[in-house]
Design a protein around this nucleic acid. Structure first.
Lengths: 221, 221
DNA sequence: TGGTGCATTTCGATA
DNA sequence: TATCGAAGTGCACCA
């Protein structure tokens, strides 16, 4: 990892063209060849960058970063170097995550109570021609219900479930198949669209669901 | 901008929980309060981060970064500081872009030739109840055509145009309205879905389109 | 201020 | 390798 603070000008040519006027910025060069241009504001996204693999040619005042894959180029014109240091970091052990959509699906598969009483799980990742449905259940009447699970329920999730339902209802062994759109939060527009199509919306409470499962179960950390 | 290289352990609690084991990493603290944890690999995305505004409390070996909005927390346990420097960068003049979707829309509005001969533009951002259609045109027969423009044509863009067309065709003053899905590149699945629904696909060439417009027009840079 | 759509999205899983 | 969906997405635009 090399960290450079420099007054510089940057031009990117690739999927688009972009230009950064002369100003002081931080240049981060990672061991894998990534190149990042950061300013002192904004969030985690750099002003400009190049994804690895890429080659860096330093020609006095002009640094040229070229993507080995796409040929995209980043030309950095250096006016003045204010800081320059290199550091050995080694390979990072990596990030452990907990709490994403997969966990919601696991929890709901383990206990379908949030959907309704007396329901049974047919299977998780129920296969269709256009991809797997998150959960396939039977309700207390034995009728099939396809469940689409999202962390945040938005309009595209409703579209996705609609496509599944259209396909599933063509199968005489399954039809009629109802739909449930389940999420930790559902946007009003998504709810309107879903209910207009006869899809029921269920808001999931992650903490409640986790609490309902045996407390002694092992956790990630 | 403060740059710290340190052996550290990081725990994030917020929309999810995440943990980073002890290892050397780069900590970037921006003037606006952003906090980034970078390793020596991956592309521009940090391992962990906090978006501004947030407060940073340094308590000897434990740094706590708290989001002022959401209350999300990042706890950084410092084992050893390998580098620590601060730099005045000032406010960045910002990025100038050329070649994104808005430009494609401008170019196609200025010259509809890529769609067909003898076409006229009704208006850009043609309003509907569920959002604006990129372009509304009339073809050489005077028939209305709704055009959805994407840089990359994928399945959700076809869904979007389908929703517009359904709505537009309910309006007796407009109907029948045809659809065109225009993009710099169209994925096979998106093309199949579009054509199955009677939507024509047009692949746009950005350089050609820019060349077709008066060369003397002022450019960004 | 909240909703929607774009992004040089990036990233991961899967066929 | 392509495709598809998720992301602590971020961000700009618009109501």
């Amino acid at each position: 990892m090399r960290l450079v603070v420099a007054r510089c000008e940057v031009d990117y040519t690739g999927r688009l063209s972009a230009h950064l006027p002369m100003a002081p910025r931080v240049l981060m060069m990672k061991a894998d060849g990534s190149f990042l241009v950061h300013s002192d504001g904004g969030s985690y996204k750099p002003l400009n960058w190049m994804t690895p693999p890429c080659t860096i040619v330093e020609d006095e005042k002009l640094w040229t970063v070229t993507s080995k894959k796409s040929g995209d180029q980043l030309k950095v014109t250096i006016d003045e170097i204010l800081h320059d240091s290199s550091h050995e970091l080694g390979i990072d052990p990596g990030l452990q995550k907990d709490g994403v959509e997969a966990h919601l699906q696991e929890l709901l598969a383990a206990d379908t109570a949030p959907l309704g009483k007396g329901w049974s799980l047919v299977r998780r990742e129920f296969p269709t021609a256009i991809g797997p449905v998150d959960l396939m259940c039977r309700n207390s009447d034995g009728k099939h219900v396809a469940v689409e699970i999202k962390r945040r329920g938005e309009i595209d999730g409703v579209e996705q479930l609609t496509r599944y339902l259209e396909l599933l209802n063509r199968d005489p062994l399954l039809a009629p198949v109802e739909g449930i759109f389940a999420a930790q939060a559902i946007k009003p527009q998504a709810r309107v669209l879903a209910e207009d199509r006869g899809i029921r919306c269920v808001v999931l409470d992650y903490d409640d669901m986790r609490g309902a499962i045996d407390e002694s179960q092992p956790r990630l950390f």
